[in-house]
């Protein structure tokens, strides 16, 4: 999933300083799972903003809606009836995709309430960690199921670098060295010899470096 976390209240507050009435929009997808932008967080943020504005003697009116997903026009359309003339700004609690989908549909001041962090998963309640670098050409079958592109701070494809000590990354002792993990896993699988193969320079044109990426699936396209 896409993991995100809320921007500081002060920051969101400043982003809508001019508005009198705002639409606060949550997303029922990834950001609900990672407790950053679901219905509960929408209520909390809207209440905090109203309270802060009240204390500043400039009351704010909020309308709260949480869509199934903000990254899908089918659900975004459901906002149409809430996006009225009086709405001065839309606060999106989705990832960057959702914010853009709202901005694309409505000629309104749309602001992000979250910082989109990474593609990752839940380690334990309240703990999420990055797992995928979205490089566009998966090599996990060659690295024991551990991604060096995103889990190694230097994205080394023929690691580990000289900074790996006691299983930890030189950048931060709280981070496991991805190549130590790869080494351990390949040893466990009896495939250490695979690591002697030199992984060639990667084709980054398949990653973000190649410009905006699109996926087309013929059979899913409606005639």
């Amino acid at each position: 999933m896409i993991v995100a976390e809320g921007k500081p209240l002060e920051e969101v507050y400043a982003l809508i300083a001019e508005a009198k009435k705002v639409l606060v929009v949550g997303c029922g997808g990834c950001v609900t799972v990672c407790l950053a932008g679901g219905e509960k967080e929408v209520g909390l943020l809207a209440a905090s903003l109203r309270m802060k504005r009240k204390l500043a003697d400039r009351p704010l009116e909020t309308v709260e809606v949480t869509l199934t997903r903000q990254c899908d026009p089918e659900y975004v359309e459901q906002l149409d009836r809430y996006v009225t003339e009086e709405i001065d700004a839309i606060v999106s609690l989705a990832c960057g995709v959702g914010v853009q989908f709202l901005a694309e549909r409505y000629p309104k001041w749309v602001v992000p309430a979250l910082n989109t962090k990474f593609a990752g998963g839940t380690l334990a309640p309240g703990r999420w960690e990055e797992r995928c670098g979205l490089c566009g050409e998966c090599i996990l079958h060659r690295t024991g199921g551990i991604c060096p592109i995103i889990r190694c701070a230097k994205s080394i494809l023929n690691g580990p670098c000289g900074g790996s000590q006691n299983g930890k990354c030189e950048v931060n002792k709280e981070i496991d060295c991805a190549w130590q993990l790869i080494y351990d896993r390949m040893r466990l699988l009896g495939r250490l010899d695979d690591l002697l193969t030199i992984e060639p320079a990667k084709d980054w044109s398949k990653a973000k470096d190649g410009g905006l990426r699109k996926v087309l699936r013929e059979e899913a396209i409606l005639a």
Binding site: K154, S155, I156, L157, N158, G159, C161, I198, E199, P200, A201, K202, W204
Partner: peptide, 12 residues
């Protein structure tokens, strides 16, 4: 950072 290629790929 860049890390387009790694040190072994640079050698090659």
């Amino acid at each position: 950072n860049v890390f387009d290629i790694d040190s072994i790929q640079l050698i090659a």
